[in-house]
């Protein structure tokens, strides 16, 4: 398996090294795309994770048992197609090729698999058609 997920840390556990456990105890390959702690001391890590299916499931149980919430990145960065006017402004701003202008149709297409949640598109989109739901 390989997928992009978001870990939400409650303040009580934000200082614990969960990434280390994922690597050492569950033999997962992790690639941190983004990490932050807010003023309320809640943490959020966007990461790409790959490894054995079974061990991944065990890792999720372990994280949840420790009070972390795990969600798929796909549920967090939303392309509001109704709001999108397919102008194309985002296509040179998106660094990962998730937002592309398909040719010759000249229609914007959002590939969630490629999104790294950098959030540059949120404000570069004049129609405000991209939303973050973290």
């Amino acid at each position: 398996m390989k997928q992009k997920i978001v870990l939400h840390f409650p303040s009580a556990v934000v200082e614990q090294p969960f990434i280390y456990y994922l690597v050492k105890d569950f033999n997962l390959v992790v690639n941190i795309l983004k990490a932050e702690i807010n003023p309320r001391k809640e943490g959020r890590i966007v990461l790409e994770v790959s490894g054995d299916d079974q061990r991944y499931e065990e890792a999720l149980e372990f994280l949840q048992a420790n009070g972390l919430r795990v969600s798929s990145l796909r549920q967090e960065i939303i392309w509001n197609e109704e709001r999108c006017t397919h102008c194309g402004a985002c296509s040179v701003i998106c660094p990962s090729g998730a937002l592309v202008l398909q040719r010759p149709e000249m229609l914007i297409c959002f590939d969630e698999q490629k999104c790294v949640a950098c959030e540059h598109c949120l404000k570069a989109c004049p129609a405000r058609a991209m939303e973050a739901r973290f």
């Binding site: 102008c87 194309g88 296509s91 701003i93 040719r103 149709e105 004049p126």
Partner: peptide, 21 residues
């Protein structure tokens, strides 16, 4: 419209603000 233009020998990504579709 190809998404890339050449300016003084350099390739630059291009994007519209006007919706062709």
């Amino acid at each position: 419209k190809t998404g890339k233009i050449c300016i003084n020998g350099r390739e630059v990504p291009s994007a519209p603000l006007s919706s062709y579709a």
